[in-house]
Design a binder for these strands. Structure first.
Length: 266
DNA sequence: ATGGTCGACTTTCGA
């Protein structure tokens, strides 16, 4: 079973790139973030024709929005509200996988949090921290026999080697100590296993996002690991491979995020 | 030293 998560930064502007990714990587499940459209505007038919008849979409006008596309049936889709602010940042559904049973798929787009890492000066930063607290509450005491995968643009790079310079990026929203603290607490709530780091050791640099603003993103390589694949402990022995598809970051007019691909033998 | 780039959908915001 192959799952890919990708912050596509507008599904309508980059539908052809999603189709290219599908053709090349053939994921069983594709989770998109920042689709930047309403459910009505979502190109459902194109994805159906590409082989993904099962779709769970949480769209929103102009901003954020998430979609889970699957070759396998998706049952009981739902979206959680993590604050009083209306948004499109979560869609969950159970993927019914032949011979392997049900796997719960949570697709998240955590708020970016603005520029100033201080909730007194920046409401967006407070919203980000509160959103993560709400997620933590949701997943606390959910431990059980269920197989679960949580993917998405979580907008935090927790480890030193998840950023190009731990020292310099520690002052930048996405890698500040307070964010890493709430993020780690969320991770321990279930607990979740960081699938990317199960395969690629924490001693190695690993990024999934590179700013549009660099002249040459690969040469400067000032990346951050903002996109994640988390799994329950019962899936950990079934995880076989992880890859950041960084060549996609070279495609013409691509997203600033690269897709992350995970392969399981269920 | 501080700018640099995207997309949506407005004349600016969110990332």
């Amino acid at each position: 079973m192959r799952i890919i998560t990708w912050n596509i930064n507008s599904v309508r502007a980059r539908l052809h790139l999603a189709e290219q990714l599908i053709e090349e990587a053939k994921p069983d499940i594709l989770c998109l973030q920042e689709i930047k459209c309403t459910n009505d505007q979502f190109p459902a038919k194109a994805f159906e024709e590409a082989g993904y008849p099962f779709q769970a979409v949480r769209g929103f006008k102009a901003y954020h929005g998430v979609a889970t596309l699957s070759k396998f049936p998706l049952s009981d889709p739902y979206t959680l509200m993590h604050s009083t602010i209306d948004d499109g940042r979560h869609i969950a559904a159970n993927a019914e996988i032949p011979q392997a049973g049900s796997v719960a798929i949570d697709n998240y787009y955590i708020p970016a949090g603005g520029d100033i890492p201080d909730r007194e000066q920046n409401d967006k930063f407070g919203h980000k921290l509160d959103f993560i607290d709400a997620m933590t509450n949701h997943f606390t005491d959910k431990k059980g026999e269920d197989k679960r995968i949580l993917v998405g643009d979580l907008n935090i790079a927790p480890l030193e080697n998840d950023v190009w310079s731990h020292k310099q990026v520690s002052k930048v929203v996405s890698h500040t100590p307070i964010e890493v603290e709430v993020f780690t607490k969320l991770q321990h709530a279930l607990p979740w296993v960081d699938a990317m780091r199960q395969i690629i050791p924490a001693s190695e640099k690993l990024y999934s996002w590179w700013s549009y603003r660099a002249r040459d993103w690969r040469a400067s390589n000032r990346g951050r690991r903002l996109d994640h694949v988390w799994i329950t402990e019962n899936l950990s022995p079934k995880l076989k491979a992880i890859k950041v598809l960084d060549h996609v970051r070279d495609w013409e007019k691509t997203s600033d995020h690269a897709p992350v691909q995970a392969d399981f033998e269920l």
